[in-house]
Design a protein around this nucleic acid. Sequence first.
DNA 1: GCGGAATATGTCGCTATGCAATATGTCGTC
DNA 2: GACGACATATTGCATAGCGACATATTCCGC
Lengths: 106, 106
Amino acid sequence: MQTLPLTEPVLLILLSLAGRPRHGYSILKDVERMSDGRVVLSTGTLYGALRRLLDDEWIERMEEKEGPRGRQAYRLTPNGRRKLQLEVARMKQLTRVASLRAVKES
Amino acid sequence: MQTLPLTEPVLLILLSLAGRPRHGYSILKDVERMSDGRVVLSTGTLYGALRRLLDDEWIERMEEKEGPRGRQAYRLTPNGRRKLQLEVARMKQLTRVASLRAVKES
DNA sequence: GCGGAATATGTCGCTATGCAATATGTCGTC
DNA sequence: GACGACATATTGCATAGCGACATATTCCGC
């Protein structure tokens, strides 16, 4: 996991949180919007990914004033944001290569 | 699998074959070059992915004139090429969204 | 105030995938 | 003939995604 190629679901979750902190369900809907309805995460995917991202400290849980149960918001850690930007840079480069390669020939 | 988000290894394999037909080992080296040494596929990944791509008819085996043993070349099918181009377009759009999102805020 | 849709969080079990390890073989060259 | 590069393949493990299931709350219309 040292060269970290993020999977699509995880990338979209992080991008969703890049805009502002959100709680799980909100991420779900945002990812759907962001991808024009193409990516619909199952809750299994979402909460599994969130747990892993918490473990790796890409994101952190935000204390909700009240709300003893339900809705807990997550936000990117500074470290998570940094790594996400690296990931995006990586993606851009890959996209550049991909465009060159895929277009060639019929 | 109807919305097909290709994984990085598979995408790189297909991009490698987009340039010209290659045999397995050649793909391995090409992917490494293409990614500036960042992605080094294990043979397990490679041959597993090739088998799946053959099954799904994204690629096909090319008859080698002689070469009774070893080296068998693979090439993209027309269908595979079409799907690859769709994938790349998808990636470009995702990268666009990602750039916008990831850059905002600190 | 009743019911249903939307909001909200979570687990379980299956399957698919990536990968290290292992195995085997050829070819050229020192 | 030994070693490194070339070449193909399988096996076994760990993980990730996802559909299905399980719950609970909130809000709105009737």
